[in-house]
Amino acid sequence: MSGIALSRLAQERKAWRKDHPFGFVAVPTKNPDGTMNLMNWECAIPGKKGTPWEGGLFKLRMLFKDDYPSSPPKCKFEPPLFHPNVYPSGTVCLSILEEDKDWRPAITIKQILLGIQELLNEPNIQDPAQAEAYTIYCQNRVEYEKRVRAQAKKFAPS
């Protein structure tokens, strides 16, 4: 494992614990031996107030490669969400998460999670990743928002 990646992720964890947006979660997972795995984080993004996503808490896994922060983490909703920019596998399609697009090593975990929260309610229809959600979003916004509200209710924190 890269010392650069681990040191950056340790800084990220410290900064997150000191200050993070209300309702968001970002925690490194534990290895079988109980030690912390900084390369694999369990996160959760709350649906934004005043949107059909409100009330939901959407679980996301963030996986970092050894060359982080040169390369972005892979962000994957578990379980996958109904959304035009979420692949059926759950992987998020967002330009700041793509090395050859808008990724920059200075982007923080907090910025990534806030960017994904923004994307939930403002899909990028130029870059669809899920045919069904994309089609319904474009053709029947009322039905799309109904499905999103049902999903938010399903993923409401207990």
Rank of each mutant, 00 (worst) to 15 (best):
E98L: 10
E54I: 08
V142L: 12
P32K: 15
L60F: 15
C43D: 07
Q139V: 03
I112W: 03
K101Y: 15
K153W: 06
T51E: 02
G55D: 14
K146R: 12
E143M: 12
P73R: 03
Q130G: 00
V86M: 12
V27M: 14
E145F: 09
C138K: 14
W103G: 03
E145S: 06
L9E: 07
D127S: 08
Y137G: 02
H20K: 04
P123G: 00
Y144I: 03
P52V: 08
A129N: 00
H20V: 00
E12N: 06
S70K: 07
M36E: 05
S71Y: 11
E78R: 14
G56P: 09
G3M: 15
P128L: 00
I45W: 06
P105H: 01
R149V: 09
N37P: 03
W41R: 00
Y134I: 07
S70V: 09
P88A: 14
K101V: 13
N124C: 12
T35R: 02
M36S: 04
R17T: 01
L60S: 06
R147W: 08
V25Y: 08
P72H: 05
P28H: 07
S158A: 14
I125L: 10
P32F: 06
R8S: 02
R17W: 03
M62W: 01
H83Q: 03
T51Y: 04
K48D: 03
L120G: 03
W103M: 05
Y144G: 04
A150M: 09
P52F: 10
R17S: 07
P88N: 08
A106Q: 05
G90T: 04
Q11M: 13
P69E: 01
A106M: 00
P28T: 01
Q139H: 11
A156Y: 08
T91A: 15
M36F: 06
W103E: 00
A10V: 11
D67V: 09
K146M: 14
Q117V: 06
Q130S: 08
M1Q: 06
H20R: 08
Y68T: 06
T51R: 00
L81A: 06
I136A: 11
G34P: 00
R61C: 11
L81P: 04
D67H: 15
S7E: 09
I112Y: 01
F64I: 11
G55S: 10
E122Q: 12
V142N: 15
H20L: 03
Q130D: 03
F58P: 06
M36A: 03
T91I: 14
I116C: 15
E54V: 08
L38A: 07
D66F: 09
P46L: 07
N40A: 15
P80K: 11
R8W: 04
E122K: 08
I107T: 10
